[in-house]
């Protein structure tokens, strides 16, 4: 099907690749269908709404810069994601790229858990205080390695 995207004009997408978010995501509860769009040589994945031009998110695999990122997923979440096995889930976190791009950050507190086998996803709100709502990543993506101080200073 042909969709209108926010950043890439009109795109032909495969309907079978569409991921359903049955509850929507906070801030956009009425948008349920998204299509992941990969970009060559990019650490990012785009997540474009299918039935609406907005929103289009930038996602990243948090393991890129945060090794051993292990969200606790409860049973009701697993059932929404139509699996019993956490190994079926892939996690992406939403990236914020503000005007002041040095404050670029990602939301480790609420990853998108996606079951690509069943094409279903949910933004999970974690109760793990080590995973911050605003985890600053600019320096890490610049190849500067982990600079934990940036995450304490920039609030």
């Amino acid at each position: 099907m042909l969709i209108e995207t926010k950043h890439f004009g009109q795109l032909e997408i495969e309907e079978k690749e569409i991921i359903d978010f049955p509850e929507g995501i906070p801030g956009f509860p009425e948008i349920h269908r998204y299509i992941p769009l990969e970009e060559k040589d990019s650490p990012f994945l785009w997540l474009q709404a299918v039935d609406n031009i907005e929103p289009c998110f930038v996602l990243i695999n948090p393991e890129t810069f945060y090794p051993n990122y292990v969200p606790y997923i409860d049973e009701s979440t697993l059932s929404i994601l139509r699996t019993k096995d956490k190994a079926d889930l892939v996690y992406y976190t939403i990236v914020v790229v503000p005007e002041d791009f040095k404050k670029m950050r990602t939301n480790l507190q609420a990853p998108l858990a996606i079951n690509f086998l069943e094409k279903v996803g949910k933004q999970v709100i974690l109760n793990q205080p080590e995973y911050q709502l605003r985890y600053y990543i600019f320096q890490e993506l610049q190849g500067g390695g982990i600079d934990a101080s940036a995450n304490q200073e920039v609030k």
């Binding site: 907005e54 914020v96 503000p98």
Partner: peptide, 12 residues
């Protein structure tokens, strides 16, 4: 989280 998502939708 909803607020952060809305911020995320305005990508620079």
């Amino acid at each position: 989280i909803g607020e952060e998502n809305r911020e995320a939708a305005k990508i620079n």
